[in-house]
Design a binder for these strands. Sequence first.
DNA 1: ATTGAAAGACTGTCAGACAATCCTGTTGAC
DNA 2: GTCAACAGGATTGTCTGACAGTCTTTCAAT
Lengths: 223, 223
Amino acid sequence: MTPGLNLRISPRTVQQETVDKLRFAIFSGIFPPGSRLVESQLCAQLGVSRPSLREALRSLEAERLIEIVPNRGPSIPALSWEEATAIYEVRELLEVEAAGRCALRISAEQLHELEKSLLAFEAAASSNDSLAQVMTAADFYSTILGNCGNPVLEEVHRGLVARISFFRGRSMSLEGRAQSSLAEMREIFEAIAAGDEKAARKASKKHLLRAKAAAKKSMEGGA
Amino acid sequence: MTPGLNLRISPRTVQQETVDKLRFAIFSGIFPPGSRLVESQLCAQLGVSRPSLREALRSLEAERLIEIVPNRGPSIPALSWEEATAIYEVRELLEVEAAGRCALRISAEQLHELEKSLLAFEAAASSNDSLAQVMTAADFYSTILGNCGNPVLEEVHRGLVARISFFRGRSMSLEGRAQSSLAEMREIFEAIAAGDEKAARKASKKHLLRAKAAAKKSMEGGA
DNA sequence: ATTGAAAGACTGTCAGACAATCCTGTTGAC
DNA sequence: GTCAACAGGATTGTCTGACAGTCTTTCAAT
């Protein structure tokens, strides 16, 4: 991991740009679940050709952010509660492991980074900006996963979180969820800062279980 | 293009067909690691147009089976030992969990299926057909993962296994590895059959650790 | 041997086209 | 009036052809 001096910056292609834009649009909830994505419309909106768009859609399909049914085209999958539960369970498995490992190996510098993420979330939690809450919370997890020493763990986790980010915005907007979430995250941070693996695992597990419960609640209420 | 006689029940598109063919080709080791995949050549070999091929390549890229660097095109990634280790670790996390859950919830019918997979591997282990060994072993895992009650766990696991299938063929061909692998798998099976969650987890963990060690050995020797 | 420039190969991207398939509203039969 | 066949439009799946940008290799000049 040599820092800097990597002059070979890969150029951003239209397809990458398109993937990013679409992913962000999906995260933002612009497309309601179940809605279909018409190629010609997206081409016009994004200003790209159909082949480029279709490549981007294939990438998103492989990420499970959209579904593509032959002869019916792409659509936003309507995530059932069973699927969301399944994702939360795997996420728990990964996050608990990551938090534990992170506690053992994080550097002082990265620990500071983690604290900054936590403070950013604290600020967002006080506001009503649920998008900011989700983003800063994602930063927090991302730092943990990025310091667990296993890039594959990080990668898989990112994919799973992406698929339920839609839920997180809603559950975060539950009354008081952001505040209790903050408390749980602080607990995780303290454990990691203390280098206490077991405590980190425990706190992480608790956090996940509560997040899952909040997501369930928000889904039952609002769906 | 292709003559009639298409009694397809579910419409299989050229794109899907292409993905499957390429995936199989990669598994078979036709493309050596690091080799580049030239679009025009693949188009000619597969008999598809460039747009269709490129869509297929994007799918495979998202599966991490190939890498696509802008302006350099797709290539087979050369898996480093660090990456393989990372995959094995996550795989362990998932498989141990799956084995444990499977022990608690598998049906008699599926248990019989699992036994058949085990016997098939037993037959393959006696032969020298390492491809058959990998295939039957994959069946065994697949049955376990398919009965763990969490489709996401299964899906993520499948993706990871695909990425290291290349290794497995080589490590399986180590002297005696297939036989000891068989013993470990039988142990897993017995634990699941007995409905003993803890034993299943333990056996599964042991199996994975040994498989990882064998993979490492084969890599150090043959790379 | 080193350097630099030209040539070739390949990818990234687009436009346009056409057949197959799906969806929808209308018509016709009972 | 209800239901089924049907015609029409909308949309996707796929191909061909094209061209500019970028990488790699070759070859000549110093």
